[in-house]
Simulated assay, not measured.
Amino acid sequence: MGLTLISTPGPFSAAFDPRGAIVAAGQVFACTPTRVWDGDGPIWCREGPRIRLAGVAAREIDNSCRLGHPCPRASGTAARDNLARLLGGALGRAPEGHIKVSGPVLRCISDGWAKGSRTAAWCSAPGIGDLSCAQLRAGFALRWPEYGGRKVCTTGG
């Protein structure tokens, strides 16, 4: 990408890893969601990063659970659809199969690299609060300490 710093609307800015839009751990950044794949991400941000929700795991979109990963009861499709709803609602599908969304700007805190070109992050949406905790409370995800699970969600997490 070549960018080392991007300014975003509002009080947030993001320092990106030049290897692929990984937001440095501890950085606060904004994400305007445009697409989502499954119940724990990635969430594509108009500003560049792809977010994997920190601290939780959802089933894969094909309903599988990888060996050693937490495996919630909710289907991959149900988890994805709930996350899309939290992100403003589904607007159709992108050619690759991702669900298009258009919601409010999220306030995110990076937990660092989440494999591939994803940033693990705790993101909050206006009126909803923390998305990882919302997915956890609704039963669409389970806690996963490997991805930033040090945080404890209030009320049911």
Results as ranks from 00 to 15, higher is better:
S7G: 10
A84G: 15
G89W: 14
A57W: 04
R66N: 14
L86W: 08
A24D: 00
H98R: 15
R73P: 06
D81H: 13
E60P: 04
R19L: 09
R107A: 07
L53V: 13
A21E: 04
G116K: 01
A30Y: 03
V28L: 04
F12Q: 14
Q27I: 00
R118A: 00
S102A: 15
E47W: 03
S117K: 05
L53K: 08
R73E: 07
A114G: 02
C108W: 02
C71R: 11
R52W: 14
P18M: 08
A74W: 05
R85Q: 15
N82S: 13
C45T: 05
A79K: 11
T8N: 08
T77Y: 07
H69T: 08
S64P: 12
L91Q: 15
S13Q: 06
H98C: 12
R107N: 09
D81I: 12
G116D: 04
A21V: 01
R59E: 04
W44P: 01
L87E: 12
F29H: 01
V28E: 11
V101P: 02
F16G: 00
W113H: 11
G41F: 08
I51T: 03
R118G: 00
L86I: 13
R73C: 05
L87S: 10
T77A: 13
T8S: 05
R35T: 11
I22D: 00
G103D: 07
A84K: 06
D81W: 13
A30W: 01
L83V: 13
L67N: 13
A14D: 02
H98F: 14
G103L: 07
H98P: 05
V28G: 03
D81K: 10
R66K: 13
R80P: 06
R35H: 15
T77N: 06
K115L: 09
P33H: 03
L53M: 12
P42D: 03
P95Y: 14
G103W: 06
I99R: 09
I6L: 10
W44D: 06
T34N: 12
P42W: 03
T34V: 14
L67A: 14
R46E: 02
H69R: 09
P72I: 14
G48F: 06
F12I: 01
A84P: 11
G89L: 13
A24P: 00
F16M: 04
A74Q: 04
E60G: 03
I22M: 02
G39Q: 09
H98E: 12
G88Y: 06
I61R: 10
L91V: 06
P70W: 13
S110A: 11
P9K: 15
R93S: 14
A114H: 00
H69M: 08
F16D: 00
I51C: 07
D38Q: 09
